[in-house]
């Protein structure tokens, strides 16, 4: 058995938090997927060596303080308006990487119009969409993406489709639009999923350089505070209940819809 002090040396370093994440303590609840999603986006930007070439747009929601944690140029947009702000930035600075980082309340509820129109216009931006099926910051209210039967503070007996309507698969919806080029759905609950999601984000940023249109990465995430579950249990619940409704994988690649059993 070697001593730990022999191993813990600079030359043996394998993995370290990227310097593109600031040293501020994340404001998220323990186990929240936001932190992982933040980190992999920043790791991709580090790999691209595009720290000074990237402008991010933060949303309103739990990740409203993303500009505090991401050590790059950031703008904080009005609720739901991140794709519109990103459009403006990208048109002024067409050579910069521009991405928005939005939650489901921001992107799929109040920002539906901006999202759909930015995607339909085919702006050369990347949209990172964190979907946890709930309004986390305001106390776990039902969101458009809340799945059937899911309990939230405004649907305490579970979402009833008759009275509350159907959950919105906004990712499938925007994949139908001609302006989107790459649409995928990923998760960050296991190391394998994180590595896969990072590859998808890398691909989205690479395609942005080619000016092909909107690249859209949905990350199905947990909200353990909103779901009233411990973090590990929340991830298990997500796999059992969210993934059947929000299946993992690419939805649109190279501007063509991917054929699956469901469509």
């Amino acid at each position: 058995m070697m001593e730990l002090t022999d191993i813990i040396k600079e030359e043996n370093l394998v993995y370290k938090k990227t310097p593109l994440m600031t040293d501020k303590v994340l404001s998220y609840c323990p186990g929240c997927g936001h932190g992982t999603a933040h980190r992999i986006v920043m790791e991709v930007i580090e790999e691209l060596d595009a720290m000074e070439q990237t402008i991010g747009v933060a949303p309103v929601g739990c990740s409203v303080l993303a500009y505090e944690f991401m050590n790059i140029d950031m703008i904080q947009a009005a609720h739901g308006r991140a794709p519109a702000v990103a459009t403006g930035i990208k048109r002024c600075y067409p050579h910069k990487f521009v991405f928005t980082y939005q939650g489901d309340g921001d992107l799929a509820a109040i920002g539906t119009a901006e999202t759909i129109h930015a995607c339909n216009r085919g702006e050369n931006i990347t949209i990172i969409f964190i979907n946890n099926g709930i309004y986390g910051m305001t106390g776990g209210q039902m969101a458009p993406t809340t799945i059937e039967g899911m309990k939230t503070s405004t649907s305490p007996y579970g979402r009833d489709l008759k009275s509350m309507g159907n959950p919105l698969k906004i990712t499938e919806l925007i994949a139908q639009l001609p302006g989107t080029y790459f649409v995928t759905r990923q998760a960050v609950h296991t190391p394998a999923a994180v590595r896969k999601a990072k590859k998808a984000i890398r691909k989205a940023f690479d395609l942005q350089k080619e000016n092909k249109g909107v690249t859209f990465v949905e990350i199905v995430s947990n909200c353990n505070s909103g779901w009233k579950l411990p973090p590990v249990k929340a991830n298990e619940w997500m796999v059992e209940n969210m993934f059947p409704f929000y299946p993992m994988g690419d939805i649109k690649v190279d501007g063509e819809l991917v054929k699956t059993d469901s469509n």
Partner: peptide, 17 residues
Amino acid sequence: SNCAVVCPDGVITVYRM
């Protein structure tokens, strides 16, 4: 480095030799 990759708060640093 599985633990470090999945850690939401990025608190884990990994060394290997």
